[in-house]
């Protein structure tokens, strides 16, 4: 039990496009412990979905290319370069995944029950009736009421929230220890979003399940995540325990996101936003990738790329301000 459940070390993923190379994920490292809820936050194009897919070996190669030095260690075993059979032992059984849009991620011509049951049977080899019983139990566990009836229904007969619950049940059917949820709430309305996060936290607690929550919504993860990683331009911009990140973020980008989220509550005269637009992955800005959008940027930021600098216990930020805090006053 000395090693973490999942350790990602120096993960690099690039996409070969006809004219150039897009470095979607660049030197990302993090770990998830058993039962931990880790949130990865970033805007569109920051590499978070690529990251999530690469953890299951699901990136299409080509066009994607994973850097040979990358390591993905599940329970101490490196999966990088593993064959399809090894990946399949991990998919579903060790790591479950909930996709973004429940309307598209359920097969329209199969009943909910058989979709859960299929995954149960793929991983346990139990009989059809045992698998169905387990499937109905899972549907009940994720808060689908009348699971026996719902198991016989088809995806189009369910509401968005119910579909998302069913999708989580399918993801749990292999009995995974880690659940990756890629924007699990993006397609839902706000009240259902809160319920869904509650469910994930509750499942994490009850099943000892580690959850990797991939989202663009920083405010949403505030209450549920133990730790937060903010991604910018394919890199980790800041990584900290959730409470610390919200109280004392060190990266100007994180602060910009927080301001934007708070501005919604305070009804200011103008919506606070991070100025500028995220850069394209084919042409990251030189040196610090955030400097063109940063209000604090000075000469050093344009010349030299900052590493992840320790800003406290378990708190790291990729910003020269951590090294030269006196600059912040101005």
């Amino acid at each position: 039990m000395s090693h973490p459940l999942l350790a990602v070390r120096d993960l690099g993923v690039s996409y070969q496009t006809p004219s150039s190379v897009a470095r979607a994920v660049d030197g990302v490292s993090f770990t998830i412990d058993r039962g931990e809820i880790l949130a990865i936050v970033g805007e569109s194009g920051s590499g978070k979905t690529t990251l999530a897919l690469s953890l299951l070996g699901l990136l299409p190669t080509p066009p994607a290319h994973v850097a040979p030095t990358s390591r993905i260690e599940y329970d101490g075993v490196n999966l990088m370069g593993a064959d399809t059979a090894a990946w399949r032992r991990v998919r579903g059984r060790e790591i479950g995944m909930v996709f973004q849009d429940p309307a598209l991620s359920l097969n329209p011509v199969l009943s909910i029950g058989s979709q859960v049951t299929d995954v149960v049977r793929a991983h346990t080899g139990c009989s059809r009736s045992e698998a169905l019983a387990r499937g109905i139990e899972l549907l009940g566990m994720v808060g689908v009421d009348g699971p026996e009836l719902r198991a016989r229904q088809y995806p189009h007969q369910l509401s968005g929230g119910l579909r998302q619950r069913a999708l989580i049940a399918v993801a749990l059917a292999g009995g995974p220890k880690l659940l990756i949820a890629d924007e699990p709430t993006a397609a839902l309305d706000v009240t259902v979003q809160a319920q869904m996060l509650e469910l994930l936290v509750d499942l994490g607690r009850r099943l000892g399940l580690a959850v990797l929550l991939v989202t663009h919504d920083l405010a949403l993860v505030a209450e549920v995540a133990h730790r937060v990683i903010v991604m910018y331009a394919g890199q980790v911009a800041e990584s900290a325990p959730a409470t610390l990140l919200f109280a004392r973020s060190r990266h100007p980008y994180t602060r910009g996101l927080l301001r934007a989220a708070r501005a919604l509550d305070e009804r200011g005269p103008r919506l606070a936003a991070v100025p500028g637009a995220p850069p394209p992955a084919t042409a990251w800005p030189p040196a610090c990738r955030f400097h063109p959008r940063c209000g604090h940027a000075w000469e050093r930021c344009r010349q030299e790329a900052p590493g992840l600098l320790a800003a406290g216990t378990q708190h790291e930020a990729r910003c020269w301000l951590v090294a030269e805090p006196e600059r912040e006053a101005g």
Partner: peptide, 15 residues
């Protein structure tokens, strides 16, 4: 997405 999801959950090619 549901085919990607099925792959992510470890179903075999045949299945």
């Amino acid at each position: 997405d549901y085919v990607a999801a099925a792959r992510a959950l470890g179903l075999s090619r045949w299945r």
